[in-house]
Computed example of a mutant assay.
Amino acid sequence: MKQPTLVVLAAGMGSRYGGLKQLDGLGPSGETIMDYSIYDAIRAGFGKVVFVIRHTFEQEFREKIISKYEHKIPVEVVFQDLDKLPAGYTVPEGREKPWGTNHAVMMAEAVVKEPFAVINADDFYGRHGFATLADKLRSFSDTRDKYCMIGYRVGNTLSESGTVARGVCQVDERGFLTEVVERTAIARGEDGRISFTDENGEVQYLDDNTPVSMNMWGFTPDYFDYSNELFCHFLKALDTNPKFEYYIPLPVNLLVAEKKVTVEVLDTPDQWFGVTYAADRPDVVAKIQSLVDAGEYPSKLF
């Protein structure tokens, strides 16, 4: 049985590489958030890690990041650049904005031939999520059109420093995704309830256990075919939406709505966290230290 691959979306480091949150030492021995993700992936049984980066910082990334992992797990590097487009398409004049997370996923097609997970480089996901995802992906070895995602409980993803945006998941009675809806300005109020304001200006409330997407997905390789096809479709409409970005929920929602695929939403009790605001840093440091103190992680990972 092939072990699943972990695809880490790290191209967003770009010009920020060298000092901000992606490389900030938050663990007791200077570990970054990404170090914890790789550590959790290794112990969950992932067989390979693929980093999606940009050419502009390849050398630095190889020296400072990959050197830590290359003797622990096989590592591949692929590149997301603005001009990585399907045949017949060119970058529109004046376009500087990246093409989005699903475009980043597409860059891994040449090196991923087995079920794979996708995560952000700068999010702390927790041990349980990786173990759950790896187990499910191993069961997908000889299948297609069956995907999954880790649905974090919204109450475990909030920031004490401000509001957050989350992909709120609509799930059917069988536990399968029907839609991811982006909601902004989510926060816990003084009354303890979690709320956001919808597109009609109405306040809506969310149960603490409502699943949300934190960009932790599981796919089989056929997802690349769907992604390429839909990307071409959207590129044709750039004139009407010049700032278009190809985020993962966009093709997923379309494929689910057309009943071409299923996406199982897998629950995790883990607390997601990240440095959304500068003020979040001390809290993140404290949360990691508490996990180390509880024996979840060693004081030095690698």
Results as ranks from 00 to 15, higher is better:
1 M>L: 08
12 G>C: 10
13 M>I: 15
19 G>E: 02
20 L>C: 09
23 L>N: 13
25 G>F: 09
29 S>L: 00
32 T>Y: 02
36 Y>C: 04
37 S>V: 05
40 D>C: 06
41 A>I: 06
45 G>N: 08
50 V>W: 10
51 F>N: 02
53 I>A: 09
56 T>S: 12
61 F>V: 04
61 F>A: 12
66 I>N: 08
68 K>W: 01
72 K>S: 13
75 V>D: 07
76 E>A: 11
77 V>L: 09
84 K>Y: 12
85 L>E: 08
90 T>V: 09
91 V>K: 04
94 G>I: 12
97 K>S: 14
99 W>M: 10
102 N>Y: 05
104 A>Q: 03
105 V>Q: 01
106 M>P: 01
113 K>E: 13
114 E>N: 14
115 P>K: 07
115 P>S: 09
117 A>D: 14
119 I>W: 08
119 I>E: 05
120 N>K: 11
120 N>C: 13
120 N>L: 15
122 D>M: 07
125 Y>P: 12
125 Y>L: 12
126 G>E: 01
137 L>R: 00
137 L>F: 04
139 S>T: 13
140 F>I: 01
141 S>G: 11
141 S>T: 14
146 K>W: 03
147 Y>R: 00
148 C>D: 02
149 M>H: 00
153 R>P: 00
154 V>M: 09
155 G>P: 05
155 G>M: 06
156 N>Y: 01
159 S>F: 09
161 S>Q: 15
161 S>W: 03
164 V>K: 14
168 V>L: 06
168 V>H: 05
170 Q>I: 00
171 V>M: 05
173 E>G: 15
175 G>S: 03
175 G>C: 02
175 G>Q: 00
177 L>Q: 05
177 L>V: 06
177 L>S: 02
177 L>C: 06
178 T>N: 07
186 I>T: 10
186 I>S: 06
186 I>P: 12
190 E>T: 14
198 D>Y: 13
201 G>A: 10
201 G>K: 13
201 G>L: 13
202 E>G: 07
205 Y>A: 12
210 T>C: 15
211 P>F: 01
215 N>I: 10
221 P>L: 13
224 F>K: 04
226 Y>W: 13
232 C>Y: 04
232 C>E: 15
234 F>E: 12
252 V>L: 13
252 V>S: 08
254 L>A: 07
255 L>A: 05
255 L>W: 11
257 A>P: 00
258 E>G: 05
261 V>L: 06
267 D>W: 00
267 D>E: 12
267 D>I: 00
271 Q>R: 05
272 W>N: 14
274 G>K: 03
283 D>Q: 03
284 V>S: 11
287 K>M: 11
292 V>Y: 04
293 D>I: 07
296 E>F: 01
297 Y>A: 03
299 S>P: 03
302 F>Q: 01
302 F>A: 09
